[in-house]
Design a protein around this nucleic acid. Sequence first.
DNA 1: CTCGGATCGTCTGGACTCGGACGATCCTAT
DNA 2: ATAGGATCGTCCGAGTCCAGACGATCCGAG
Lengths: 162, 162
Amino acid sequence: MGTFAKNTDDTELALCAAFPTDLTMLLHAAAGRMTDDLDLAAVEMGLNDVRDWLVLAALDDGRQRTQLELSRVVCVDKTTLISVLDRLEKHELIVRSVDPSDRRVRIPQITSTGRKVYAKFAVARDVAEARALNGVDQAERALLLDLLARIADRQAAALPAS
Amino acid sequence: MGTFAKNTDDTELALCAAFPTDLTMLLHAAAGRMTDDLDLAAVEMGLNDVRDWLVLAALDDGRQRTQLELSRVVCVDKTTLISVLDRLEKHELIVRSVDPSDRRVRIPQITSTGRKVYAKFAVARDVAEARALNGVDQAERALLLDLLARIADRQAAALPAS
DNA sequence: CTCGGATCGTCTGGACTCGGACGATCCTAT
DNA sequence: ATAGGATCGTCCGAGTCCAGACGATCCGAG
């Protein structure tokens, strides 16, 4: 799925939308813009990726989760998740504790500083989204989110049928 | 930007949408679903990626383009584009001809078989999009595409300001 | 108790990505 | 004519991703 180039160009930016009728391309272009923006915000506060924040977000609800469960929740490969957790742990944003009832599994948990960084990033995300949707009224926003969710889910539901 | 895992899971599919209010995540999830679907269609007809098709699509309009121009149009790194073109050329879907007026540049051009493959893939794409938007009326579709385009473009326009 | 298989986290090998360097070619100024 | 610099396509090296292998650990059958 990671299939398209990062936008390092400064001049020729909007050309991803050269296929203005193609849903897939538009989705990619839009997602790419948001991600580029958020990646920037992420590195500013010591994170590495949007993924770093995504993992933090998943951990913020305080649920105890196996690394494997976590990797499934955030759609990050379990081996890749390891490097993410390593980095987060090094920065003391999370800790990995061993489940005493099953010594195979590690339970990653967010620390208080991790929670702070997460909150800080959350407002950056809100700003980015607000800017992206500037001038779009509430009903249209709701429709957009609903349609996106439907696309993401429907495809999933449609696959096992075929 | 290539930041999220491919969905090789069969069981836990819809969990990318575990953050149903987050625009960025939803965009990624939706784009991922479409791409997964189209990747499947791509390999079925001898292509490798959505990117392969994307390049073919860009070449299908018959405009003469430098490889560098092409890489900008489709948002693929110029070095990565080389491997794509190599593959397409090996499968005789394109040819690289040397511009006689500037022997530095190569002009990739789609062949007739390339055109055929492209057309075949286009219907697969239409089917996938139709399924994704099944039950969404015309006005809503138009709005969706418009909003996505706006997100993709507005961010680009907003960046140089900051 | 113990043995075989399942499941956890981690490691490793091969493939891919992309910034920077390179030769070839062009263009402009002198 | 030619030197210097810009621009093309390609190559290389460091970084990343992920399928599969691996040790550690758990659990159930006997």
